[in-house]
Structures are given as C-alpha cells and as structure tokens.
Design a protein around this nucleic acid. Structure first.
Length: 493
RNA sequence: GGCCCCUUCGUCUAAUCGGUGAGGACACCAGCCUUUCAAGCUGGCAGCAGGGGUUCAAAUCCCCUAGGGGUCACCA
C-alpha cells in the first residue's frame, strides 16, 4: 500500500506557520515513505473562503518548496480537489445515511439552539443538542420542508460503547460515545460540515495517514463514527502538537508575524523557515539541528514527533536564517536580495551582468554580519548610493577629534596613490601612514569607515574599500573632510 | 463545566531494555580575536512541575495533585 497523505487548508486566511508545520510533516512523511502528497482545499465555508487566500496559500507552499503530487494547479486522478466541487459526492453519502436511519433532518432554529446552550451553561452542563428532531416522522419532515422551514442534517450518534482513535503520536485514545450529541453533518445551505466532508474525502481519496494538528483530536472520534456507520476504513491518525505563541496562547495575529508571507517579506529564507519548523515538535534524535532538506526527509519519522505543544521563538528562526543566508551560493544570495534592495529604493533595476555581479559581491560581503535579507538591504545602501547619512553618535565620537581634518586629508592623499587598489596594497599604505603619523590603526580606520559607509560597523573595512573602488573611497573621504571642516567653522562662529 | 491531550534549562529539544556528572541548540552573560561590529571562537549561567508509591536503583514505570493546551459551532 502506498502512503497517501493530504494537507487540507481552508482558504479563509493566509497560510500561517502552524499550517506550514502541519504541511511540512505531511510532506516529509510522504517523501520519506515514497508516498503521495495531496493538497486539498477545504472550502466549505462559503462566507469566509476567498480566492485571494487560496492563491496566497498555494504561492506560499510553492515558495517553501512544499510541492504536491495531486491538487490545485496540478490535477490528479482523485479530483476535484476543491470540496466545493464535490458536493454531489457528499450528497450521495448523505442520502445513504438518511435512508439507513443514521441521520435526520433538524428544524431547530439557531436562536433556539443558542437558548438551550445558554441554559446548559447556566446549569454547568456541557452544551449538548437535545435530540429534539431525532424522532420526527417522515410526514412531519415533509410538511415542514414544504412549509419552507430551513433545516440541517444531523448524524444519529450511537450512545452506547466507546470510540477508539488509533494515533501514531498519542497512541490509543478512547472516548465514550455517550459524550457525543447528534452533531450537524449538513448545514442549512446544503453544504456538509468539516467532519463529514473531510472524512468522506479522506476515504474517497484513499488517504492512508491523516497528519494534522492536535486541535483536531477531539473531533476525530466523530469522524471515526461516520466511517463506522458508512463502513469506511479509518485512516491512520497522527495528531501533531500545536505551536503556541510566546505567551502560551493560541497563535494569532496579535502575536506579530504568523503568516508565511510576513516571514518572506522580513527576508527569511524558505530553507530557514522549513528547518526551524521541522525542529518544532520533531527531532531526529541526537544533536542534529541544521539539516538540508534531503537529510530531513531521510531522517523523518512520526514516532519521533513529540507530544507536547511548542512555543515558537523568533530568535532561533533568525539565527537559522543567518546560517542559510551565509551558506547560499553567492549568486543565489545576490538574486534573492534584489527585491529587498528595490523595495527600499536602493537600486532600481539591475540591468547588466556587471551590475548583477557587483551586487552579488556586495551581498556576499554584507551578509556575514546580518540575519535577514531585509538587513542585507539596510547594510548595503552605501554600496549603491552617495547620499547615505552619517550616524550621529559615530560622528560625535570619531569626527570630533582635533586632528580629524588633517588626518582625513592625509588619508585621501595616501589612498589616492594606492595602485592597484586592492586589500593588500591598501593595508600596506594605511600601515605606513599609521606609523608615520604615530597613530593607532583604529584611529585611522574608524574615520575612514565612517566617511565611506556612514557608520562604524560593517564588514571588513579593506574588503569594503576594495569593492567600492579608489575613486569612490577617495571622494567620500574628501567629502567627510569637508563635513568636518564645516562643523569646525560652525563651532568657531 | 464535561471530555481529551500534555508537563526535562527562559525557549526548542536529547537521553536504546529503569543505572548519565541529565547532553545539544537558540537566547543571555563573560572572555578572546580584530581596523569596527550586531559576526567568529572559547567558556559560563540555567532544567527532570509537586507529592506518593514500585525497585537495590526512577527524568524514565504506576497513582494522585497542580499547571498548561485543545475541544464541546449551521469554522475548519
């Protein structure tokens, strides 16, 4: 039997990291087992499902490299893969349930149900449907229908015995049937609810393993009951732990970045996000942390998935990101940085190959000290523009020296003579200057750095200079000298 | 409230059948390196929720308590 798993998002919002982690575990399991990954769209919520979310979710999946074997943009033999296009299939099964006396029409109004729920709450009882419509006669049902009363369809849930969920993560979980009420399987708009549609599709699509978040565990016995009544085989379940926000509550927008798109905009790399999320709730055992995708696939197994919920930690993700950022091929990193440089108005177009090559070098240099593509762009500004500002605190510290003007002048003079303008030659020239002026190297280098980058931190200064080239460096040092001169003048006045 | 799940450093986690100085990573702190630094290197801090059992021996098995999370929707 070949493994078939599915990820079934509902297009009611962006793909968030919890969803990604679920998708990832499904994907890793499928790839590890040589199975199929199915993407199904659970869009039975007419009000909240939106086309833009669907597209965004698919884009996010593709960006992450979580590809699927069957589903939207792809097709497959078990389609359609949008639940909204499978209504007739559900209808068929619902009729069977109705005919077999395992389901019934319920005409109770939402208002009435709300009232009962409130009563239950007041009495400290669990909210529970009372089975009001369970024994309506066929005639009564027909009359009410003819009357135009709206109705839902409920499953007649057996109250005897217990239902067992076999779970690869939680092991065997047992529920007593008497705790279940007759839950709704078809809404008044004629569309099945999650418990029905999902169960039916999982069976119809021959899903072998249902891997999903733990929030679904409590719902699972209802799905098992449906299978039992319909004579369907239950899939093997694996309820993976949830991802919680730093305050231990369920992840929501108020916790900051939660959607894949937001991480992408921040300059997080897909590899980093994948690696980080893989480590949340799963460990290959031992000390392994940083893993290429291939290794994750070969190491992945559901019995190493932990049972307890985990709290996501942006700092570790960022740290992983810096690792992936640095180990990417130079040209690849350069390409990835382009949108961020454009976004900040640092570059407009990268036309020629030379321009791209230069950009690649800049990114290569700058990425050593930063953690995201966003920060790469921030750190790269002075490589592309002359109008960068000087950091005020640094100016106060390094441009306020008595000898700053003559020193900058000497520096400009010396650097102007360096030929060829390369790391070693520049280094030698500055060393010579330092000893002739009896100045510590830092007394020379810091002002240069500030003059040519506007700040006192960054990559290796010699690398920066070599990449900028003699003309720009000398020009900037001269400009800094003028800046200091103006400052002095102001002080004199 | 009923039901279900969970509980190892602040966070993510490791620890084949019970025997470990309870290991690693991020974060944090310190030192080193260096022309700077938010980088790198080295080191440090820090944990078995609590209480009972079982056992020669418990983070590991059992029970209880506490805490956290989930679910009980005409949302998925």
């Amino acid at each position: 039997m070949t493994v078939r798993v599915r990820f079934a998002p509902s297009p009611t919002g962006e793909l968030h990291i919890g969803g990604v982690r679920t998708a990832l575990f499904n994907w890793l399991f499928a790839r590890n087992q040589g199975g199929k990954m199915i993407l199904r769209i659970d869009d039975t919520d007419l009000q909240r499902s939106k086309e833009k979310y669907l597209q965004s979710i698919l884009d996010s999946m593709e960006w992450l490299g979580l590809d699927w074997d069957e589903g939207p943009r792809k097709g497959g033999q078990f389609g359609p893969y949008h639940q909204i296009q499978r209504l007739d299939l559900y209808q068929h099964e619902v009729n069977k349930l109705l005919e077999g006396g395992n389901a019934y029409h319920c005409f109770c109004t939402p208002e009435e149900l709300a009232r009962q729920k409130k009563q239950d709450a007041q009495r400290g009882l669990p909210p529970r449907y009372r089975g009001t419509c369970r024994y309506l006669t066929e005639k009564e049902v027909e009359e009410r229908k003819k009357d135009g009363q709206s109705f839902v369809i409920r499953l007649k849930v057996p109250q005897e015995g217990e239902t067992v969920v076999e779970d690869l993560v939680r092991n065997r979980v047992t529920f007593e049937n008497k705790i279940f009420d007759d839950f709704i399987i078809v809404k008044s708009d004629g569309i099945p609810t999650y418990n029905l549609a999902s169960t039916l599709d999982d069976a119809r699509m021959e899903i072998t393993h249902v891997i999903r978040a733990e929030e679904h565990l409590s719902n699972t016995p209802r799905q098992v009951i449906i299978c039992k009544i319909l004579g369907l085989d239950t899939p093997i379940y694996a309820h993976v732990p949830m991802i919680l926000a730093p305050d231990h509550s369920k992840l929501s927008k108020r916790h900051g970045a939660t959607s894949v798109q937001e991480y992408r905009d921040m300059g997080i790399l897909p590899d980093a996000l994948i690696n980080y999320l893989a480590l949340l709730g799963w460990s290959p055992g031992g000390d392994k942390e940083i893993m290429p995708l291939e290794e994750m696939i070969s190491l992945f197994s559901l019995d190493k998935v932990s049972k307890n919920a985990s709290i996501y930690d942006l700092k570790k993700l960022t740290w992983l990101n810096s690792h992936y950022l640095r180990t990417k091929e130079k040209a690849v990193a350069g390409k990835m940085a382009v949108p961020f440089l454009k976004e900040k108005g640092i570059v407009s177009e990268v036309g020629s190959e030379d321009e791209q090559r230069y950009l690649d070098e800049v990114v290569d240099l700058v990425r050593e000290k930063v953690k995201t593509l966003q920060e790469v762009a921030d750190a790269a500004i002075y490589f592309f523009r002359e109008d960068f500002p000087y950091d005020e605190a640094d100016v106060a510290k390094h441009f306020s020296r008595e000898d700053i003007v003559p020193v900058l002048e000497k520096i400009a003079g010396v650097l102007g003579e360096v030929e060829p303008f390369q790391k070693e030659t520049i280094k030698a020239a500055l060393k010579t200057l330092g000893s002739s002026l009896k100045l510590k190297l830092s007394k020379i280098n810091l002002p240069i750095r500030l003059a040519i980058t506007g700040r006192t931190m960054g990559p290796d200064l010699l690398d920066v200079m070599a990449l900028l080239g003699r003309d720009r460096v000398v020009e900037r040092v001269k400009r800094a000298k003028q800046f200091c001169l103006d400052g002095k003048n102001e002080e004199l006045i």
